[in-house]
Design a protein around this nucleic acid. Structure first.
Lengths: 299, 299
DNA sequence: ATCATACGATAGAAAACACCTATCGATATG
DNA sequence: CATATCGATAGGTGTTTTCTATCGTATGAT
């Protein structure tokens, strides 16, 4: 039964019987049969298919919702029992938005000190991807914006507030200022993340709110790429202050990190984890760690 | 997997492999094998047994906790999908403490008007039994005291407050009074419920608090039995006012229902249901009904 | 229109699994 | 010490699961 529900979850992820089967480690007929068995046991069609996967029926969506919960609970149960015997062992899968990647360390370092046998997989993802991956049980926790898009069924722990700075060479236009307005920033050619990133959309919105039409010279989904450009002092960018500090971009002779005002925008970033009660022990420990370090990060 | 968890739940209920197997509709070796498979899959012993069932290991208790949730969710899922197709159909299992039995009608009657295809099984149980049966998924909801013993993981809807009256013949001692004190009641021989009922313990405590040693002439776990005795006018009892009214005991020529004061004791009675989110559709509808009628019952 | 391709359903065989009956061994009970 | 009770074990049987191979259909390209 639970295996069949896993089939259904895989199908929801992959939207493709063959790939879903592969993800589950079974052949396509096996997965097809599994889905059909679910349908027969419920007496309802769950998947609309016409020679290929189309989508889920309303009933299918409901079952999917339950399946996420039941499968998640089953995994949490296994993990908890295992932890009772062997302590906290396993792999924690975390996803973070690019601008928060540098902050993951503030969680993982103390976590590892407490639980040295836990391994980490940390992925760079968009805020939307983080939420869907949380839903699909593909990650255990995420680091993302808490106050913008609706989060869904998650527990959130606020960690810090993202405030924006203009990173620019000291001898470039605006480079001598103690503060700049968004209207002024909008006139400078910028390196930013790609538009699928919420950070980019936030910044672009702030720029547009001034009435200007911002000019994005260079965009990338990789912070390393933006970093390497900005560090030369020949490119400007808008970055969260804390991130720029972590990257050492505020300490160079060439570069200045200038507070941007009017409005003094900020967004809360925090840890999100599935709203399961109780959580898996690994995740619970991460949330505990987050609550512990949050006071040292929030202002 | 889920079937095995059901085995475990049955074993927790019956504390006996053979009876648990019978309850699950399988033979004892099958159930034994199922438990053993769970143990092997977790790599931990779940049940302490030495030639017979003893108890659950700590790990077993944890698994049991998860099993309750997972099995409950699986059932809720089935019911919800079924309800999507066929509307609210099925059987609602309710347990109520004896003094609340007469109030069940205030929920079931409007419920049935809304959902005529739902059948009911209503059992008379002690407040403790109600809570364990809720835990074990043997009932869908209960009617019991909300403000005395700890309730556990349930959602509670207060329905009404139980206040106490002395039921006594008009020509008996105290029969002419407009109000009596608990101290006075303590001197009258009474018919009450058996001591496993919380109502009995509540009333007896109130009587003892006066310093007296109450005299219980007759006790029973059946309200019908108490009713038939009290109705003759030859026996006295202490009953919740609302119950006495429902039974018509306050309208006879012979009998009087006298408010008991000093202290003016009262206890909240309400609907309890498993704290599952979302609930099964049948249970959710019952809780909704309770919230609807509560204002008409509470004072 | 025709062909090629991708996708999911179906058929049939082999393997795995679950469940049963019968029985054993151990431990309480008289 | 005899007996009954309980749960584990053994062995056999029927079902279920899963595999490989193939089919039918829709889609897209030529």
């Amino acid at each position: 039964m639970i295996d069949k529900l896993e089939f259904l979850l895989a199908l929801a992820r992959e939207k493709h019987f063959g790939r879903a089967a592969e993800a589950c480690g079974v052949t396509q007929p096996t997965l097809s049969a599994g889905i059909k068995q679910l349908e027969e046991s419920f007496g309802v069609l769950l998947v609309n298919r016409g020679s290929r996967f189309q989508d889920f029926t309303p009933e299918g969506e409901r079952v999917l919702d339950w399946a996420r919960r039941i499968v998640g609970d089953a995994r949490a149960m296994r993990q908890e029992v295992h932890a009772l015997k062997h302590g906290l062992v396993g792999r924690l899968r975390i996803a973070a938005i690019p601008t928060a990647l540098a902050m993951v360390e503030t969680l993982t370092t103390p976590y590892r000190a407490r639980h040295p046998d836990v391994q980490f997989t940390i992925l760079s993802r968009t805020s939307l991807e983080i939420l869907t991956h949380l839903e699909n049980l593909e990650i255990d926790a995420g680091l993302t914006y808490l106050d913008n898009e609706p989060l869904g069924r998650v527990t959130a722990v606020p960690l810090y507030r993202e405030r924006y700075r203009l990173l620019v060479a000291a001898d470039a236009p605006l480079g001598d200022r103690d503060a700049v307005t968004w209207a002024e920033v909008a006139k400078v050619p910028l390196c930013l993340l790609t538009p699928d990133m919420q950070n980019r959309r936030i910044i672009e919105q702030l720029l547009r709110d001034t009435g200007a039409d911002p000019h994005i010279t260079l965009e990338s989904n990789s912070m390393i790429l933006l970093y390497s450009h900005v560090r030369t002092g020949r490119w400007a960018s808008v970055m969260p202050q804390r991130l720029a500090a972590t990257l050492g971009l505020t300490d160079t002779n060439m570069l200045r990190a200038i507070p941007i005002v009017e409005p003094e925008a900020s967004h809360t970033i925090g840890l999100v984890a599935p709203a399961r009660e109780p959580m898996t022990p690994l995740t619970a420990a991460l949330v505990a760690e987050a609550r512990r370090v949050a006071p040292t990060l929030m202002d």
